[in-house]
Design a protein around this nucleic acid. Structure first.
Lengths: 183, 183
DNA sequence: ATTTATGTACCTATCCATAGGTAGATTCGG
DNA sequence: CCGAATCTACCTATGGATAGGTACATAAAT
């Protein structure tokens, strides 16, 4: 693993727990056993680091979705995949979605980071839309996709802040089954 | 309006946009036209301010719920009230729920502030539970309440970060109607 | 093959602004 | 007069960021 990778791991760990302002060059340097000026070597400005983190997070997220998906999957299976990928983000890392936290702070983020967050959410909505049953209208798909995404993000936040991971499962199970049943 | 009130308004404004670390004594002092040491007079420690903000926010939230509720309201009407109160928090203030943002940052907050956040969410869940139809089992009520709360929190975050307030309405409309219809 | 150049990854040292927080003097309304 | 509110004047720690330098590996030129 390269230094850059370890640096991003440390930064993601911190940012997914306390947000953008909870990450400092000094803390990262301390995590790495190097000096803060060396962190600046890898990411000249903090927003460079922010963009890199969101892009890596997004890339890994969609890779995980694709890896667990198959063209033959039913709509219900695809939605379960979406749920499972979010769940492992929560469970494996013990923290909420990077973009969920940064999305909440969006008004105070550098523009370029804010744009990355929006791109992530748009791609999420698009993926969910394509996973929904064909018989739905486009408007219905848009609406359902938004519920599913918002529900998953809210579930992560709530489960984490209540220190009750099972809450995530309870909430998202209903989100998915509602979409499958009602439609 | 007292100085303390104005101070809390300024602090809430900032905290609901950028989170706990986006609020500084100096910025608040500048907002108020006083010195930062004078802000410390009102709130000796930052966590005192954090607790005061969450408690005021919570108090106002439940006052708004009660003011718009009536014992004769149907379950559906009560859920619509819940939705409307969240919506006006988003719309009137142009920012997401204070506790939603702080909940996302919970791992990096002072303990005492974190506890206030959990109390707010517990009270939310309790309120929703009592608004749900009587024929549901306790476990069903718990689960549905969690979906509604997480969905509203996620909807605020998503609508704000996508700069699309209508998204909140789209999402929450489905959350409420699903609970009313399925149950 | 050896010099010359370029690039990588760090370092020390420092900058200036901001962070939360404190002590003690001063102002001002009841 | 008294106490609430604000001030001046600090402190220490940390924030992001920069300048200039070192060691070493890789690459290009002669």
């Amino acid at each position: 693993m390269t230094t850059t990778d370890k640096l991003m791991d440390a930064a993601e760990f911190r940012m997914r727990r306390g947000g953008y302002n909870a990450v400092s060059f000094r803390d990262l340097a301390s995590d790495m056993g190097i000096k803060s000026s060396s962190v600046h070597y890898h990411y000249p400005r903090k927003e460079d680091l922010g963009v890199a983190l969101v892009e890596r997070y997004s890339q890994r997220f969609f890779e995980a979705l694709n890896a667990r998906s198959d063209p033959s999957d039913t709509s219900s299976q695809r939605l379960q995949t979406f749920r499972a990928v979010y769940r492992s983000a929560l469970n494996d890392d013990g923290a909420i979605c990077l973009c969920g936290l940064l999305g909440a702070e969006i008004d105070c983020l550098p523009d370029i980071v804010a744009q990355c967050i929006q791109t992530f959410f748009l791609a999420n909505l698009d993926w969910i839309k394509n996973a929904l049953p064909d018989h739905l209208t486009d408007a219905q798909k848009d609406a359902n996709a938004a519920v599913i995404l918002a529900g998953h993000q809210g579930a992560m936040m709530l489960a984490t802040s209540m220190k009750d991971t099972a809450l995530f499962d309870t909430i998202t199970a209903q989100l998915i089954s509602a979409e499958s049943a009602v439609n």
